[in-house]
Write a protein that binds this DNA or RNA. Sequence first.
DNA 1: TTGAAAGCGATACCAG
DNA 2: CTGGTATCGCTTTCAA
Lengths: 349, 349
Amino acid sequence: MTVTLADVAARARVSPATVSRVLNGNYPVAAATRERVLRAVDELDYVLNGPASALAAATSDLVGILVHDIADPFFGIIAGAAQHAMVEGAPGRAGGEKLAVVCNTGGSPERELTYLTLLQRQRAAAVVLTGGAVDDPEHTAATAAKLARLTNGGTRVVLCGRPPVPGAAVTATLTFDNRGGARRLTEHLLSLGHERIGYVAGPAERTTTRHRLEGHLSAMRDAGLAAGLDRLTAHGSYDRRSGYDATLELLRREPGLTAIAAANDTVALGVCAALRDQGRRVPDDVSVAGFDDLPFSVDAAPALTTVRLPLHEAGARAGRLATGTEAPPPGGVATVGAELVVRSSTARP
Amino acid sequence: MTVTLADVAARARVSPATVSRVLNGNYPVAAATRERVLRAVDELDYVLNGPASALAAATSDLVGILVHDIADPFFGIIAGAAQHAMVEGAPGRAGGEKLAVVCNTGGSPERELTYLTLLQRQRAAAVVLTGGAVDDPEHTAATAAKLARLTNGGTRVVLCGRPPVPGAAVTATLTFDNRGGARRLTEHLLSLGHERIGYVAGPAERTTTRHRLEGHLSAMRDAGLAAGLDRLTAHGSYDRRSGYDATLELLRREPGLTAIAAANDTVALGVCAALRDQGRRVPDDVSVAGFDDLPFSVDAAPALTTVRLPLHEAGARAGRLATGTEAPPPGGVATVGAELVVRSSTARP
DNA sequence: TTGAAAGCGATACCAG
DNA sequence: CTGGTATCGCTTTCAA
């Protein structure tokens, strides 16, 4: 039925072992023999049996990239960069070809664990976890345990855009400066003279959410604006609708708002829409700030001030770390910057 | 070292065969025995060896989803819906768990073939190809051949958002009405009284590009506006920059344009940006039309008229077809609609 | 430089 | 309902 390595061997008049060696290219083989084998492969249109190979070699060429939401360009950009970095550094011939596969957890911690198990089952060569973690000790522990088992089994584990897990068995961690970025963003608004600044946070149980909120709050407190911060903060999820609804709520609580900072750009889009519908002009009446600086942000809200995360760079590094092309940073953890992007149209109060 | 099925069998004092049966749940096993086995699995923290299983069973639980650009929400939405539909219809227990993996081809036909080979190598259960195909007979043939080999090997093949390949070995094809949608879009602009309508097309070698362009041109011709259509058409890629550059070019050629239709929403964003920079207001001076109706479109360009493609629905169906949860449409091909969306210039979420 | 043969870990057929 | 066991296709010592 399907053509096997033995068939190729027969056709090339060599042993299966030799064919294997030619295909993997990790062993000396006479040029003439190799030539003969490759021809046979071509003629028979042979395709290696991955499972069999993985079983015998006890590793596969699969690399899993876990994302919260595949429809969100934030993750798309990271995943794309990671995948690209993997094929880049790979040996040309059939050898080191990594199959980068992105897995959509939908933000569900259970699904995340499920995927990790599935990848463990496949004996994945590496796993990249992107995006903030769930802020729950129990789940952190469960994840840490699973990751430990993965690394024990020889799978490389890379965290990208997720805080380091203290004593966890992880190859490398790339973390965004969410706290610092959020802090600088709010400081910028403060420097323009804003004082009544609303904040639309993400889902409460995410580290990203917490860190960004902490950055914002610390800036407010340091500016002597500690009073009533709760009233000026609304929680939601990381989507547009959430920004819309939260804005209406904030305006109800505090009609005198002159600026709103959002957990990310997508949320900021919803903020802008709500303000528009309420008859407030952005940025003339209310300044809006976002986070992530996704490509469409500039069109969607030219008035947006944002913090730019180096998504592409982080993804690429994660990819290289996963394939072992790049050495882990000292201590295993590296923080990639968060850069303030001030667009010309940000208004003063 | 790692715990195997035999270890579990020993601990549960049963044969490996029984353990396998319990795990796969596709064979009668006494409740007491099953109980004992499951406990052993738990206690030993056993994880099935995927490759070994795939080798023995001659199939894996991998499903590949090929996308042109993972950072483009167009594909993210389709892929997300497909993946979701797969886990939905799966048996709860360790059984039918499909590992949906999305593969980023970056729009390169070679990479597409590479991924297909890789998936064939993994003995994937199914493959979903999303997005337009490359409009080149040679590549069409190469792809068709590869797909034939996949289906021969028992892999289900689903095309989503890609035209049917005439005599190809494909399980099912879901195609968008790109031609009809584009035609209606332009007809709408015409009905508003526009006559000098520019068109920003996608990359020349894509079927999506060609079909949308054909729809536009046929509408123009039928309106008696056949003259100088070449001058009013600019080609580019499917990104924002491309829309920006093409718009400048079109305005240079024909400063009197009153409307511009773009190959997709992302391109339309670039069109709007260029118009803004040229001091033309949208939609007062120039009407802009897009395609796909991505979620951020409404914010990015509230004045945009678009054609909405049922991305979510198409993706979900593709997922079900890939897992066999849904029966293929009669003839193997189904066209999912394209709906005209006319916005007023203030948008709600 | 090449070949022979022993696994890798699960599945499924054939008995019982 | 349960147990033995022959594969599945490849990798990898060990010899030659």
